[in-house]
C-alpha cells in the first residue's frame, strides 16, 4: 500500500504543527509562498492561513515561489516556500538559477508525500522521495529532515544560516504534522 494512503491515526509518533509554525515565525519569516500539499495541509498551511503574523501568498505553480522569494529578498524580506516534493522537482531550474547560481537564500519546506516516516527519505518506498536528497546533494543545497519533535529545533538555525551565508535550504517534512 502506498504510504500516503496510511491513516494518519496509525502513526504512533506525533509531529506537532504549532511548534513548526512557531519556529518559522521565530526565523523572521514574514511571507509564506505555497501550493497546497496534503502532507502539510492541516498541520501547517491551515494554521498559517489564519496566522496574522504571516502573509500567505497562494501561487499557481511552485516555481513562482522562487521568483517571488527572490524579489522579497532584494527588499530585505524573508520568505518560506511551503510545497510538495513534486513541486520541488518541477521547480529545479528556477532553484538552480535563482537559488544556487545567484546564491540566494531560497528557503523551502517540502512535504514528502508518500514517504514512510519510519525510514529515511533515501530508503522511502516512493521513488520520487528517494531521489530528493541525492538531487539536493548534487545541487549543493543543505537539507534537514523534520520528522520528529526534536528536529523542529533545526528550522531556525537552518533558515538563519541560509540568510547569513546566502544559499538555499530545504527542510523536508517527513510525516504529516498534526493540528496541535
Amino acid at each position: 500500500m502506498d504510504a500516503d494512503l496510511v491513516d494518519e491515526g496509525h502513526d504512533e509518533i506525533e509531529l506537532k504543527g504549532s511548534p513548526i509554525v512557531a519556529a518559522i515565525k521565530a526565523s523572521g519569516i514574514e511571507y509564506i509562498l505555497s501550493v497546497p500539499d496534503i502532507v502539510t495541509s492541516r498541520g501547517l498551511l491551515r494554521p498559517i492561513a489564519r496566522d496574522r503574523d504571516l502573509k500567505l501568498i497562494r501561487v499557481c505553480k511552485e516555481d513562482e515561489c522562487i521568483g517571488i522569494a527572490s524579489g522579497l529578498y532584494y527588499c530585505g524580506k524573508r520568505a518560506l516556500s511551503l510545497i510538495q516534493y513534486t513541486g520541488f522537482l518541477d521547480s529545479i531550474n528556477a532553484i538552480r538559477g535563482v537559488g544556487v547560481e545567484y546564491k540566494q537564500p531560497i528557503c523551502m519546506m517540502i512535504g514528502l508525500l508518500g514517504h514512510d516516516p519510519h525510514t529515511t527519505p533515501r530508503n522511502s518506498p516512493r521513488y520520487g522521495v528517494r531521489i530528493i536528497e541525492p538531487i539536493l546533494d548534487a545541487m549543493g543545497i543543505p537539507h534537514h529532515l523534520i520528522n520528529e519533535e526534536p528536529d523542529i529545533a533545526r528550522i531556525r538555525p537552518a533558515i538563519d544560516d541560509a540568510y547569513a551565508n546566502s544559499h538555499p535550504v530545504a527542510l523536508l517534512i517527513g510525516r504529516r504534522p498534526s493540528v496541535s
Binding site: I57, I68, G71, Y73
Partner: peptide
C-alpha cells in the same frame, strides 16, 4: 519568472 520576481518586489 520575471513576473514572479516583480510580484516579490512589489510586495
Amino acid at each position: 519568472l520575471d513576473s514572479s520576481h516583480a510580484l516579490g518586489l512589489a510586495l
